[in-house]
Design a protein around this nucleic acid. Structure first.
Lengths: 217, 217
DNA sequence: GAAAAAAGTTGCGTGTAGGCAAGTTTGCGT
DNA sequence: ACGCAAACTTGCCTACACGCAACTTTTTTC
């Protein structure tokens, strides 16, 4: 579905990208993010520093990409994969909660690293915009391609809501970190996501109803 | 209303900011955006280059800021200023259409400049996120402070929809430019804005109803 | 299967973003 | 009115992003 004919070229590109981001994360964890030069990352991944910048347009991007991974694609697939019966709002909300609540233990200490550095936090929050395009397609698929504009706006809004939830979560995390104990848990991300997405449910449902009505006629 | 106690300090800051962005725009128009160094802008505004970066975190920001101006504040004020009777969705949509359709003739050639340079276009589109905070307050004011979270999500979604509309408008503009004739008009921005915001109306209305019901109890 | 075309990598050079610490200006309490 | 504290400006310095043009690798075409 998501995998195209392959081609050696594309394989290498993905491999390089993967090598860069894992190298970036590993080095950041080993020495702390401030002691990692892009030269180091490039060297660890076996490419030139110039090539690094062909893949990532900032040093932070590579690090957060290792955590965010291919979440965009997974979210879109999850939305598309919900059974026909469930409403659009439920499909979207549950798909997102699922994908952002992956039991990814390996990411725990990485997130710990991210929350403490403002630049990294910002880059991490920025990753939410990456879900817009896949999500647009997924929503358009469910709405029946009547009006791609609507799907795009809804996807952008959903991404914005996710961003809001992440910001709240990070803020809670960092304040609980400075407040005292071990950091990890903070407010429950799933709850924050649901709360942030809830106000958009009427818009999603309305679009779905409109699409249905339109198709009948 | 929006003007605080003043204070000489704040005045100077605003003056510097204004000087920087007008200088940036003037120079960009005179010589073309690629022939403007931040040193030039700083010099024209009478500050050090280092100070420039205390105000704007990229060269493009200053140029687009001259066009975007204080639109954030105006949008928020316009939303807050609509009569109590009109629904939230209408208030928001009309306020935004008004503010983005200012008959600002002086901005015409500036926009012409912006659409042609990808970096400037991106920076211009990014300015939409600036309306989020003021708009959050304005929406929260209309919803009655019952749940500030909802206002924030709605504001972020509205900003996202505006961004989508701007992207479409810029794309239409640039393609009509490469296609042939004089550039300026392209698709009607007001129409694009209304179309992009329409799918969010149900969410805005639902929030308003909820707030009303909540207040009655 | 070889040659042309397309896509990707790399080094170089220029301009830029931002941390830090010292110097300057503004605001405020007394 | 005075002086202290906080906020802003500035120069210096390091690392970084990205255009460009030459070169290498993969893909396509005949």
């Amino acid at each position: 579905m998501t995998t195209r004919p392959a081609g050696l070229r594309e394989q290498k590109k993905q491999a390089t990208r993967e090598a860069l981001r894992t190298a970036a994360l590993r080095l950041a964890l080993e020495r702390g993010p401030d002691n990692v030069r892009v030269d180091d990352i490039a060297e660890a991944a076996g490419v030139s520093p110039r090539t690094y910048n062909n893949y990532f347009s900032s040093r932070e991007q590579a690090i957060v990409a290792a955590v965010a991974g291919e979440r965009e694609a997974r979210v879109a697939a999850a939305v598309a994969g919900r059974p026909r019966g469930v409403g659009l709002a439920d499909a979207v909300i549950e798909a997102i909660v699922d994908q952002y609540t992956a039991p990814d233990e390996s990411a725990r200490d990485a997130l710990l690293l991210i929350v403490t550095r403002p630049a990294l936090r910002e880059a991490f929050v920025e990753t939410t915009t990456a879900i817009e395009h896949p999500l647009t397609d997924a929503i358009a698929g469910r709405l029946g391609d009547g009006d791609p504009h609507t799907a795009r706006v809804l996807a952008a809004s959903v991404a914005a809501a996710v961003r809001v939830a992440l910001e709240q979560w990070l803020q809670a995390t960092v304040s609980s970190a400075t407040a005292g104990g071990l950091v990890v848990p903070s407010g429950s991300l799933p709850d924050l996501l649901r709360a942030a997405l809830a106000p958009l449910a009427p818009a999603l449902d309305a679009a779905e109803q409109r699409a249905l009505r339109h198709r009948r006629q």
